[in-house]
């Protein structure tokens, strides 16, 4: 019985961190789908979001909700600016140049924040407080519930946006055939900016949800979180949005189950083992089936 309740608690933990990975993985996948870039600076957007929350709560005394909204706004803007300044000029360059630039931006953000705020972690005040619920011996905290709820709402909203709206259709068209989308009158600059804005906003939400359980901001916090979300995106099939959602949850659950088995030191190792296995066995990921196209 004790084992079962531990297992249940760990599954909740897994879904909670999995939700955060999924939100970040969506950003990786959307950007890859549109411009074939593995945006390694994406994880650092999480870090920037966390610092905005920390700064606005501790220095300006803002309400948690406003701090989170501010973090979303700043991250969104940052994502768009990074694309315009660093990636857009390289649009017709080899993809490797773009990848190297993304890694450069990642270093710039991490080291820039270290320079400004120091290398130490900053403690973020409580973002979400509330009772811990007991269900059959297992417990669910309010931050965990909020994380799951917010993620579900965002996933439904994002799916509707991509499937049902004019802008979402344009995003899918650009990701399938950029030239043909342009011939249909899609302004690709707008579409690419929108994709970066959306991905960065999701990263900021993920950042706030992360802080609600692990209340620390540090300059390098985004790199491991970002890498794991990247693994989640690859596992689900990079470029596939349902894949990113599924991949995030699977990675979160895998980590939690490894911890439940008493092997928590292997947590990170298991995630990267999953990456290796996926790349060996099914490089297109769980849901990223490359479709045959007739010519």
């Amino acid at each position: 019985m004790a084992f079962l309740s531990t297992l249940f608690s760990q599954i909740i933990n897994g879904l909670q961190s999995g939700s955060i990975y999924a939100l970040v993985a969506l950003g990786y996948s959307m950007v890859y789908g549109i411009i074939m870039l593995l945006n390694f600076a994406h994880g650092d957007i999480i870090m920037v979001g966390a610092y905005v929350v920390w700064l606005s709560m501790t220095s300006f005394g803002l309400h948690p909700l406003f701090s989170i909204l501010l973090a979303v706004a700043v991250s969104t803007l940052l994502g768009v600016v990074i694309e315009k300044v660093a990636y857009a000029p390289l649009r017709s360059s080899p993809r490797l140049s773009l990848l190297i630039t993304a890694i450069g931006i990642s270093f710039l953000l991490e080291n820039g924040f270290q320079l400004i705020f120091g290398a130490g972690a900053k403690v973020v005040p409580t973002l979400i407080s509330g009772p811990t619920f007991q269900i059959g011996g297992a417990s669910i905290s309010t931050p965990a519930l909020v994380t799951l709820g917010v993620t579900v709402v965002i996933m439904i909203g994002l799916t509707l946006l991509v499937q049902k709206t004019r802008l979402g259709r344009a995003m899918r068209a650009v990701s399938e055939d950029m030239g043909a989308a342009q011939l249909m009158g899609v302004n690709i600059n707008t579409t690419i900016s929108f994709t970066f804005a959306l991905g960065s906003a999701l990263a900021a939400v993920a950042s706030a949800l992360y802080l609600s359980s692990y209340a620390q901001a540090s300059p390098t916090m985004g790199s491991m979180l970002g890498l794991k979300a990247f693994v989640a995106a690859v596992l689900g099939g990079i470029g596939s949005l349902p894949g990113a959602m599924l991949g995030g949850l699977v990675i979160g659950l895998a980590e939690a189950l490894v911890s439940a088995a008493g092997l928590s030191v292997w947590k990170d190792g298991v995630v990267f083992a999953i990456l290796i296995v996926v790349l060996l066995v099914r490089p297109s990921g769980l849901l990223g089936k490359p479709m045959k196209e007739k010519v």
Binding site: R172, A173, E176, D177, G179, A180, L183, E293, K294, V295
Partner: peptide, 13 residues
């Protein structure tokens, strides 16, 4: 408007 070479329809839509 242009109908491009090879049709280039959006195959997944």
């Amino acid at each position: 408007a242009q109908v491009p070479e090879g049709r280039r329809i959006f195959a997944r839509m």
